[in-house]
Computed example of a mutant assay.
Amino acid sequence: MNIQLKTQGVAALRPLTGKVSLVTGSTSGIGLGIARALAEAGSAVALNGFGIAAEIARTKDQLAADFGVEVSYSAADMTSPEAIAEMIAATVANHGRLDILVNNAGIQYVAPLDQFPVEKWNAILAINLSSAFHTTRLALPAMRQNKFGRIINIASAHGLVGSPFKVAYVAAKHGIVGLTKVTALETAEDGITCNAICPGYVYTPLVEAQIDSQARAHGISREKVIHDVLLAQQPNKHFASVEELGSLTVFLASEAAASITGTALPVDGGWTAH
């Protein structure tokens, strides 16, 4: 009985033991936070993204050392369907399976619609939306083979509401929510779920740099930038953390969320409750 209880306790602490996760755009920021949460929950992790090779190697080794899981890395360019196909194939070959796909890779650009550079529109749609289509279509055979899969798309509050000057980002994130619903419907009988997480502002090093630059540009305090500019639409006036998003991802990837599919879950401090 004691052995059984101990085993159940370990399973509860590390509910994703034996699973394999691929997180796109996971060498920093939100993606890395999600990768850490999945590894802590017992999943092997395949990282993806750009960065300095030595730093990525340290991140990979640190994850493996901290959580005792296998960690691999792909430098696949998310604008290239061929590179994405190679990444999915390598993940399955290296780890023997693919259970959890987190589509997190994304970029941003801000400009008025009639001045929005065409090349920026194309790049944002390719990385923020089309890459998720390609990873999903290519991951489904491995998931269907094991009759288990969790696809978690990192959308945005901008997948649910619009904002000026972000035409490509808003269009792509609305598309991600639509992709999530269709994927959920097509895989509903296969042991696979698909959900979108829709964060508002999340505190990352990139946001920290944005706070400082806006404070200098407008001649106002950091606190005013945070309260009146960045978090103007978030009623709780509080950044979400990468740890919050990681915990929600782990829950959605677990057996406890087996009946949750096709949803778009806001993590936005009340932004979309307006």
Results as ranks from 00 to 15, higher is better:
P112M: 01
E255D: 06
Y73C: 13
S241L: 14
A273F: 08
L22P: 13
P112E: 07
H134G: 12
A44P: 01
H218R: 12
E244S: 09
I220S: 00
I34P: 07
A39N: 09
V23M: 03
W121Y: 13
F67Q: 10
L140I: 05
A123D: 15
V20M: 07
S43N: 07
S26P: 01
A273H: 13
G106Y: 11
S80N: 11
T17I: 09
A105Q: 00
A215Y: 15
G149Q: 11
S131V: 03
I34V: 15
L98M: 09
A93P: 02
L265I: 15
M78L: 15
E70Y: 05
I127C: 06
T17A: 15
N94H: 13
G31T: 02
K166R: 08
Q233M: 15
H274A: 05
M78N: 15
M1R: 08
V242M: 11
G200T: 05
G9E: 09
L138N: 12
K181E: 13
N153L: 07
N236G: 01
V161G: 02
I84P: 07
L125Y: 10
K224R: 15
Q115V: 01
L230K: 11
A39W: 14
L230R: 11
A142G: 06
I56N: 01
A46C: 15
E82N: 14
P164A: 09
V207R: 03
F239R: 00
G175I: 03
A240H: 01
N153T: 04
F67K: 03
E55S: 08
T261M: 06
C198G: 05
S213V: 07
S72N: 10
E255T: 08
S221E: 10
G269P: 04
E189A: 14
V182K: 00
N104G: 10
A257S: 10
A44N: 10
R144P: 12
V102Q: 02
F165A: 02
T261F: 10
I107W: 00
N146M: 06
L101T: 11
V71C: 11
F50W: 12
S130I: 02
G106E: 01
L16Y: 14
A256R: 02
Q210S: 07
A209L: 13
I226C: 03
H174I: 07
A64T: 04
S241Q: 14
F239C: 01
V250Y: 05
I260K: 00
Q234V: 05
T17Q: 10
V45T: 15
L231N: 06
D99L: 01
D61A: 11
L113Y: 08
N122G: 00
P117I: 13
F165C: 04
T7A: 14
L245Q: 14
G31Q: 00
A157V: 06
K237C: 14
T261A: 04
T17Y: 10
R216K: 11
